[in-house]
Amino acid sequence: MTGQSGTGRRPDGAAFIIAALLAGFGAVLLWDASTIPDRGGYAGIGPAAMPKVVGWGLIVLAAATFLGAFRGRLADVPRQNPVPLILIGGGLVLQIALLNVVGFSLATGILFAATAAAFGKRNLLVTLPIGTALAFGLYGLFDGILRLNLPGGLLETLIYGG
């Protein structure tokens, strides 16, 4: 949850980026609200009111974050290893892309192997079959027995018959 501070440099730059992102989000809300016909009806306040309030709120918070950055007190960020992030993110992207092509088991097996690799188990010859087998078992349990509709591929159709 709240940041685990460790040793590292003070990310003043990060605070500027966060402030910019917040302000950007706020601006998008305000822009979108401006395109909405604000039919308040009998209530007097319509669908554009809430996005406007939140949008301005985010801009104020962005300003506060920006000012705070000069005092350099955002958070101490521990050293981050980007490789696991890329591995897990990539695994998810592959799962999304392949889900409806190769079916749930194989796509999820890939995610499993990618996650295991992110945590140090790099031997795909071990992790990929294990992950696929686990996902395949889950498919049988959830799609077959509990009738949750999971996307099936060739593997599932061959063994479970669809």
């Binding site: 889900l99 409806n100 999820t108 499993f112 996650t115 992110a118 945590f119 889950l138 996307p151």
Partner: peptide
């Protein structure tokens, strides 16, 4: 490695099961 790989497997299973949309 196994624990978190399993967590992600179930987390995506829940999402895919309710709404298998990309």
């Amino acid at each position: 490695p196994w624990l978190y790989a399993g967590i992600l497997m179930f987390a995506t299973l829940g999402t895919i099961g309710v709404n298998p949309s990309p």
